[in-house]
């Protein structure tokens, strides 16, 4: 039985939240370890991962970790920053621009130092959250992104037709 995965197609969400969720799923597909077959399910309300009756995940950080089989670094400063400072911004409306910029700069200066392969799940999560908030600043810092990330970004773009 294959693992079913569904993208975040929930309407009315903050754009950064959908982008980071879907980027994590496309990254998971790019970086998947070869343990099981993964099928994208278009019917399911996402974001979600289902593995038989045993497992249902609705959190894309956990989905990425599960697919990569990488649970390291959950107690690191980088991971704490990626979740409690960056990802927590996705839930809120009307965050002052300067605050977002300051958080993104801190991420780029202190944590997202390199994108050299092999990339850990923690680093991919930091990347996705930082990119979702300010793609242009991430692009500026890394003129060349690893191929798997470029492919994930392209796959992600196809998911969100411009309205």
């Amino acid at each position: 039985m294959s693992v079913q995965i569904a993208f975040d197609k929930v309407k009315g969400r903050q754009q950064a939240l959908s982008l980071s969720n879907n980027l994590k799923i496309t990254l998971a597909l790019e970086y998947a370890s070869k343990d099981f077959k993964i099928a994208v399910n278009e019917e399911l309300e996402g974001p979600q991962l289902i593995n038989g009756d045993n497992l249902r995940l609705i959190d894309t950080d956990a989905i990425l970790r599960y697919i990569l089989n990488d649970f390291e670094g959950q107690r690191s400063d980088e991971y704490h920053y990626a979740l409690s400072s960056l990802e927590s911004l996705f839930q809120k409306n009307d965050i002052p621009e300067q605050h977002v910029e300051a958080c993104v700069s801190k991420s780029l200066d202190n944590y997202l130092l390199s994108l050299e392969e092999p990339l850990s799940a923690t680093r991919l999560i930091t990347f996705a959250n930082t990119y979702a908030l300010r793609p242009e600043l991430v692009q500026k810092k890394f003129s060349e992104l690893p191929k798997k990330i470029t492919d994930a970004l392209q796959a992600c773009k196809k998911l969100s037709p411009r309205s």
Binding site: N51, I58, Q74, Q91
Partner: peptide, 25 residues
């Protein structure tokens, strides 16, 4: 691996400050 993933999920939800939205889950 499944338990690790579930543990990671709830750790992530707590760190993001999002548990209030995921009480049903």
């Amino acid at each position: 691996r499944e338990q690790e993933a579930v543990a990671a999920q709830w750790k992530s939800i707590v760190l993001k400050g999002n548990l209030a939205n995921d009480l049903d889950e």
